[in-house]
Design a protein around this nucleic acid. Structure first.
Length: 359
DNA sequence: AAGACGGGGGT
DNA sequence: ACCCCAGTCTT
């Protein structure tokens, strides 16, 4: 890529001034603390600004410094992250912050070779922290930046391919305003979020439309090119809210790896494989007293669908429950990190319970 | 290079 | 129903 000096200068000026003028007032824009910028960037991975704001505020209140996060028990960390999704982000963030506390005396590294080695910090997050917190001229290429630059520069490579990202990283390094790296990078992202949107971009409001090849050619909404399809798997589960005579409920902790790792759930059995009647006595050492239907719904993940049917069971306890399952009171459940599908079932149980009390 | 990994919002 | 989102890690 080979831009003329004047073109580059004017593009930088237009973008940076637009950002300074029009930027949204967001919580993480009131600080330059690299730790807080880091937290915000991790939360923003594959997640919308509006979703992140309340999580960010609660998280920073609970863990104001790297030391606070480093010392937090995992259950407390996951409870803070509950509902935000991609829970390995939380674990990796804590692991990365622990590295910073231990190896760098709690100071986030200010250079790419060191910062990118931190757990959970990839090429984008590295560049975002370096440019936003330290004002370094580093690329921070996310989906917004690829969309904006694919249009401005008419880049028709498939952005689903990993190697394509390098093209955009080089383009940013070529274009970035050395006087305003933070505003330049954030300007590209802000433009992607507010103006240069995936469908129906607001080109007439765009501060850089005079530099935009796709706008001049007339079909900006057809870029970027992205192939790739997601094949979804369907899974079918029966889920049981199991209550004993002491008003305790049975929950199990998911495995430490994989989907929803270390989160808690009500006992769940795959429908196709198991006749769910035998599940109780065989697996959990209890006798059924009553059975009531709760809620049926689909929960859609990025790569699979859970088809859920849930039931409220009252049981008599024969002995200890099996391995990973534990009896909890309603009060204790409040402290457990539950994935959203389990929160829905728990909410449905509370509704029927309230109904019974009323009647 | 492809798949795993959440959940919500827009069209 | 399908796409996207301030991506990273694992295979």
């Amino acid at each position: 890529m080979n831009f003329h000096y004047q073109y580059k200068k004017q593009f930088q000026e237009a973008l940076v001034q637009w950002f300074i003028r029009e930027k949204r007032d967001l919580p993480w824009r009131h600080t330059h603390d690299p730790y807080k910028i880091w937290v915000s960037e991790v939360m923003l991975q594959q997640t919308r600004v509006d979703t992140v704001i309340p999580y960010y505020n609660r998280f920073i209140e609970e863990f104001p410094t790297p030391e606070d996060l480093a010392q937090a028990p995992e259950e407390k960390l996951l409870k803070q992250w509950e509902g935000l999704g991609y829970y390995s982000r939380a674990r990796n963030l804590q692991a990365g912050v622990r590295e910073v506390v231990e190896k760098y005396s709690s100071t986030v590294p200010d250079n790419r070779p060191e910062i990118i080695k931190l757990k959970g910090v990839g090429p984008y997050t590295a560049g975002a922290i370096l440019s936003i917190a330290y004002n370094k001229a580093e690329h921070a290429v996310d989906g917004n930046v690829m969309r904006v630059l694919s249009r401005v520069l008419l880049i028709k490579e498939d952005i689903a391919l990993p190697k394509t990202k390098k093209i955009f990283e080089q383009a940013v390094m070529e274009l970035i305003d050395p006087a305003y790296p933070s505003e330049f990078n954030q300007g590209l992202m802000e433009l992607g979020a507010l103006i240069c949107t995936p469908t129906s971009p607001k080109c007439l409001l765009c501060p850089v439309r005079e530099f935009c090849t796709a706008f001049q050619e007339g079909r900006p909404e057809e870029l970027p090119i992205k192939t790739k399809k997601t094949k979804m798997k369907d899974l079918f589960y029966d889920v049981f809210v199991v209550q004993n005579e002491k008003k305790q409920f049975l929950l199990e902790k998911r495995p430490g790896k994989g989907l929803l790792a270390n989160m808690w759930q009500f006992p769940m059995v795959e429908k196709s494989t198991t006749p769910s009647e035998g599940f109780l006595a065989d697996s959990y050492n209890v006798d059924l007293v009553s059975r009531e239907r709760l809620l049926s719904f689909k929960h859609i993940f990025s790569h699979l669908t859970w088809n859920m049917e849930s039931y409220y069971l009252k049981v008599e306890q024969n002995g200890q429950p099996t391995e990973s399952s534990v009896w909890f009171t309603e009060e204790e459940i409040k402290a457990l990190p539950l994935p959203v599908p389990m929160q829905k079932i728990w909410a449905a149980w509370k509704e029927t319970e309230a109904k019974h009390k009323h009647a």
